[in-house]
Computed example of a mutant assay.
Amino acid sequence: MTVVDKFIKFHRLSKSEYIELLQYQKDDGIAEYIREEAVRLRKQYYGNKVFTRGLIEFTNYCKNNCYYCGIRRDNRYVERYRLTKNEILECCQQGYALGYRTFVLQGGEDPYYTDERMEDIIRNIKNEFSDCALTLSVGEKSYESYRRFREAGADRYLLRHETADSGLYRSLHPEMMSLENRKQCLYNLKKLGYQVGAGFMVGPPGQTISHIAEDLIFLQELCPEMVGIGPFIPHHDTIYSGERSGSVEQTLYLLSVIRIMLPKVLLPATTALGTMDPLGREKGLAAGANVVMPNLSPVKKRKLYELYDHKICTGEEAAECRNCLSRRVDSAGYSLSDERGDAVR
Rank of each mutant, 00 (worst) to 15 (best):
E87S: 08
G199L: 10
I34Q: 05
F103K: 07
G288I: 00
C324G: 02
D115Y: 00
Y68I: 12
K191G: 01
D330M: 01
D277A: 03
F7V: 07
I209A: 04
E90A: 07
T84A: 05
I217F: 00
P205R: 03
S256P: 13
E316S: 06
F10A: 08
G108I: 11
M177R: 15
D215G: 10
A164P: 08
A38R: 13
C62T: 13
K43P: 00
E317A: 03
R101L: 01
K6T: 10
G246W: 03
Q44E: 15
D27W: 01
P268E: 07
P298S: 10
Y61Q: 01
N323W: 06
N181W: 14
P231K: 04
R328F: 01
Q250V: 00
F149S: 05
E79G: 00
A319H: 07
T2Y: 13
V291M: 09
S245D: 02
S335N: 04
N188M: 12
A319L: 09
A286E: 11
R322L: 15
G47M: 10
F58C: 06
I239Q: 15
E180A: 14
D165C: 09
D330S: 09
S326R: 15
G70Q: 12
C132K: 11
T84V: 01
V104W: 00
L325V: 01
M261E: 15
D28H: 11
C185F: 03
N75M: 12
R76D: 13
E221Q: 15
V292W: 02
C313D: 15
D115S: 14
M261V: 06
K26Y: 12
I209H: 04
V138D: 01
V78C: 03
L192F: 10
M1A: 13
K43N: 13
R182P: 06
Q250H: 05
K85R: 15
G230Q: 01
D115C: 14
T102H: 11
P268A: 03
V292P: 07
L325F: 15
Y146M: 14
R117P: 00
R281P: 10
L105H: 09
H161I: 14
S178W: 04
E282S: 08
D28M: 10
T59A: 07
I8T: 08
K26G: 00
V291F: 06
R170W: 01
I34S: 02
I121R: 03
R170E: 13
R160C: 03
L134N: 09
N75K: 12
L266D: 03
A31H: 06
S247G: 06
P205Y: 05
Y157L: 13
Y96M: 13
L134Y: 10
M276G: 02
S130V: 09
Y113K: 07
Y157T: 06
L219K: 03
I88C: 02
Y112D: 02
G288Q: 05
C66R: 10
S16V: 11
L254P: 06
Q25A: 09
L159Q: 08
Y24D: 05
D110Y: 12
K26P: 00
L266H: 06
D110S: 08
P205E: 06
A31Y: 03
L189N: 06
A133C: 08
E249K: 14
